[in-house]
C-alpha cells in the first residue's frame, strides 16, 4: 500500500470515531454520561440505510440516522435529567434497545446494495502532494467532521452558549443561581450527542461500508466513550484521539502477513483503549493537573435545586 492509500484509510476509519466522539464530548461537558452511544450508532446506521434505500436520497438517509440517534438520546435525557435516574443504567439499557432497534430497521436489507457518498475533491487543496489525496479527496461527511472540530471548539470556548454548557457540567448550581436553565441545556446537549452518534452510524453504512449487516459496528461505539476521556473533553483532543484509533484500526492489518494471529490483532483497539485510560487516569489524578483538565466536575452527579 502506498502512503496515500494507508493515510486515506486512516481518515475514513477515524471519521467514524470522530463524529460520535464530538457529540458525546458535548454531552459529557454538560454533566451527563451517555453510555448508550453504541446503541445510537448502530440504530442510526440501520435507520439511515433503510431511509436511503427507500427514498434513494443519501441526505435524507443521513438525516434519518441523526433523527434516530437523537430520539434515543431524548429517552436518556428524560430518564437522567428530568427524573434524575442513574445515568449508567439508562445508557446501557439504551445500547441494548438500540441494538434491537437496528435489527428491526434493517429487516430485509441485508445484502441490499446502495450507492454511497462519493469523494468530492476540493479544488486546490486536493492537489497538494500526499496531504491532498489523504484529506481533501473525501466524501461530504468527512468534510463535515473536519468543520465540526473548530466549530465546536469555538462554540464551547468562545460563546455564551458554550460557557453555559461547560458551567452546567462543572457546577450546575452556580449556573442555576445565575438564571441558566440547567434542564434545557442538558436536554439539548444530550440530544445533540445522540444525533452525532446517529450520524456516525449513517457515515458507516452510507459512506464507509455501503451495506447493512447486523452488528456492523462490531461494538466500536464503545470506544467513543473512551475517546472522550483520551481527548480530554476537548474537540481537538477528540480529533487527535479519533485519528490515533483510526490508525490502530487500519494498521492492525499490516501485522497480519507477519504471522500475528487475527484474533490478537482484533484485540488491539481494546487493549490500547485500556492502556490509554490507565495512563490518563494516573496523570489526571495529579492534584495540579486536576484543577486544569479532567472530567467535568459534575459528570454523573444528578442536579436537584433543593
Amino acid at each position: 500500500m502506498t502512503i496515500e492509500q494507508t493515510g486515506s484509510q486512516i481518515v475514513i476509519a477515524a471519521t467514524f470515531f470522530l463524529i460520535p466522539t464530538l457529540g458525546e464530548m458535548v454531552t459529557e461537558r454538560s454533566g451527563i454520561l451517555n453510555l448508550g452511544i453504541e446503541g445510537m450508532v448502530i440504530s442510526g446506521a440501520a435507520g439511515s440505510f433503510a431511509a436511503a434505500h427507500i427514498t434513494g436520497n443519501l441526505w435524507i438517509g443521513a438525516f434519518v440516522g441523526a433523527l434516530v440517534g437523537g430520539l434515543l438520546a431524548l429517552i436518556h435525557a428524560i430518564v437522567t435529567v428530568t427524573f434524575n435516574r442513574n445515568q449508567v443504567v439508562s445508557g446501557i439499557s439504551l445500547t441494548i434497545l438500540g441494538t434491537g432497534l437496528s435489527s428491526i430497521l434493517g429487516l430485509g436489507l441485508i445484502g441490499v446494495p446502495i450507492v454511497p457518498f462519493g469523494p468530492i475533491a476540493i479544488p486546490g487543496l486536493s492537489a497538494i502532494p500526499i496531504i491532498g489525496p489523504i484529506f481533501f479527496d473525501k466524501n461530504m461527511l468527512v468534510y463535515f467532521s473536519y468543520v465540526m472540530v473548530p466549530a465546536l471548539w469555538f462554540i464551547l470556548f468562545k460563546t455564551r452558549y458554550g460557557i453555559m454548557i461547560r458551567s452546567v457540567g462543572e457546577n450546575p448550581m452556580a449556573a442555576y443561581t445565575q438564571g441558566v436553565d440547567v434542564v434545557r441545556i442538558r436536554y439539548l446537549s444530550v440530544i445533540f450527542g445522540g444525533m452525532m452518534a446517529g450520524l456516525g452510524g449513517a457515515y458507516l453504512t452510507l459512506a464507509w461500508i455501503p451495506m447493512w449487516v447486523e452488528g456492523i459496528t462490531t461494538a466500536r461505539g464503545w470506544i467513543v466513550i473512551a475517546l472522550v476521556v483520551v481527548g480530554l473533553w476537548h474537540p481537538v483532543g477528540a480529533f487527535v484521539g479519533s485519528y490515533i484509533f483510526g490508525a490502530f484500526d487500519v494498521l492492525r492489518y499490516a501485522f497480519q502477513p507477519l504471522g500475528v494471529p487475527t484474533a490478537f490483532l482484533n484485540m488491539l483497539p481494546s487493549i490500547s483503549t485500556i492502556l490509554f485510560l490507565v495512563i490518563w487516569g494516573v496523570l489526571l489524578n495529579l492534584q495540579k493537573v486536576k484543577s486544569i483538565v479532567g472530567a467535568p466536575s459534575s459528570l454523573c452527579v444528578p442536579f436537584e435545586t433543593e
Binding site: E170, M173, S291
Partner: peptide, 8 residues
Amino acid sequence: SRTLIERH
C-alpha cells in the same frame, strides 16, 4: 463552592 466554577 456551590456558586463559583473553579476551572473557569
